[in-house]
Amino acid sequence: MSGWQRVCTLDALVPDRGAAALVGDHQVALFRLSDTEYVHAVDHLDPFSQANVMARGLVGSRGGVATVASPMHKQAFDLKTGQCLDDPEVSLQVWPTRVSDGWVEVELPERVGPP
């Protein structure tokens, strides 16, 4: 399955707080930053602890880069690229998002291989 999946209304997301959503068959962490209608979507799975906790992470910035810090071990991830700022060999998958008629939508990737 590919295309855009409607997840929630923009107003349902509290600025600078995360929310978890099931997009297709993948858990995604959504973040709406203060004073913006743009929503970031990254993996909900923390690659260090292997726990689905990234939506509970702390939103902040480092060097002008919007970040989320894992609630488990505090590694910071760039919300735009998913790159871990503390370990360049680790990253979170980033999901394209858009806001359409007040709804947050996340793009589903094309399925590769057999269904």
Rank of each mutant, 00 (worst) to 15 (best):
S2E: 12
S2H: 07
G3Q: 07
G3R: 11
Q5T: 00
R6F: 09
V7L: 12
V7H: 02
T9P: 00
A12T: 00
L13F: 14
V14I: 12
P15W: 07
P15Q: 04
R17N: 01
G18K: 12
A19P: 11
A21L: 06
A21S: 09
L22E: 09
L22Y: 02
G24H: 13
V28H: 09
L30M: 08
L30Q: 07
F31Y: 15
R32W: 03
L33P: 00
D35G: 11
D35R: 13
T36E: 11
E37T: 14
E37M: 11
Y38A: 05
Y38E: 10
V39E: 04
H40T: 01
H40E: 00
A41K: 01
H44M: 15
L45I: 09
L45S: 05
P47I: 09
F48V: 15
Q50M: 14
A51G: 03
V53N: 03
M54Y: 02
A55Y: 14
R56G: 13
V59C: 15
G60P: 11
S61E: 15
R62K: 10
R62H: 11
R62A: 09
R62N: 07
G64Y: 00
V65E: 04
V68M: 05
V68Q: 04
V68C: 05
V68F: 06
S70E: 07
H73W: 03
K74C: 05
Q75P: 02
Q75K: 07
Q75L: 14
Q75G: 03
Q75N: 05
Q75T: 08
A76C: 13
A76T: 06
A76S: 08
D78K: 06
K80Y: 00
K80N: 06
Q83N: 14
Q83V: 15
Q83A: 15
C84L: 05
L85K: 07
L85G: 08
D86W: 01
D86C: 00
D87K: 05
D87W: 00
E89C: 12
V94G: 04
P96T: 06
P96I: 07
P96A: 10
R98C: 03
R98L: 05
R98F: 04
V99T: 06
S100K: 09
G102W: 02
G102I: 14
E105D: 04
V106F: 09
V106R: 02
E107G: 00
L108M: 09
P109V: 03
E110N: 11
E110R: 12
P114W: 12
P114H: 11
P114S: 14
P115C: 14
P115L: 15
P115A: 15
